[in-house]
């Protein structure tokens, strides 16, 4: 793993009580990276929902299982778009996630639940799930705002 671009690493327990602290840290990080207020809120929501999914589905609500989250500044190339981006990788050692469930559900259905994945997709520019040696990895990417051109250019 490339440590040079590491902005923040979190080692958490799968306890819902930790979510509030994570949101605070992500809000500060995204603000420091220059994201707009709506973008900061979007990234906070995306990370919160990803952690909620791990706690609920990968760990079935057990509050003492390990979760690691790495935040890196990377050069990304996605669907013809290139640029600097924030990469967030969430890793757990829970059960294998059913990929069919990663599709979310039709929003026309008025029912509680199933919104988390939709929120993650809407909040981030890319989402990628991998299973590696007994671990689930969810990679989220959000392009950083382009810096303003120098005055007079």
């Amino acid at each position: 793993m490339n440590r040079r671009n590491l902005l923040l690493k979190m080692e958490l327990r799968s306890d819902p009580e930790t979510l509030c602290a994570v949101r605070g840290a992500v809000a500060q990080l995204t603000e420091r990276l220059g994201f707009s207020e709506p973008e900061c809120r979007a990234v906070v929501l995306g990370v919160d929902e990803a952690l909620t999914n791990i706690i609920r589905h990968a760990y079935a609500g057990h509050p003492d299982r390990p979760i690691e989250v790495h935040f890196r500044r990377i050069q990304a190339s996605l669907c013809g778009k290139n640029g600097e981006a924030l990469e967030i990788v969430l890793e757990d050692r829970g059960k294998n996630v059913d990929r069919a469930k990663l599709c979310g559900r039709a929003l026309e259905d008025v029912k509680p639940g199933g919104l988390g994945l939709h929120f993650i997709r809407e909040s981030m520019d890319a989402l990628e799930f991998r299973r590696r040696v007994g671990r689930n990895q969810l990679r989220l990417v959000k392009f950083l705002p382009k810096p303003d051109p120098p005055a007079g250019s």
Binding site: L45, D48, E49, T52, V110, K111, P112, G113, L115, G116, H118, F119
Partner: peptide, 13 residues
């Protein structure tokens, strides 16, 4: 978050 929205939907239903 989605858990909160789900609670509101449950209330509505």
């Amino acid at each position: 978050d989605s858990s909160g929205v789900a609670s509101l939907v449950e209330g509505l239903k």
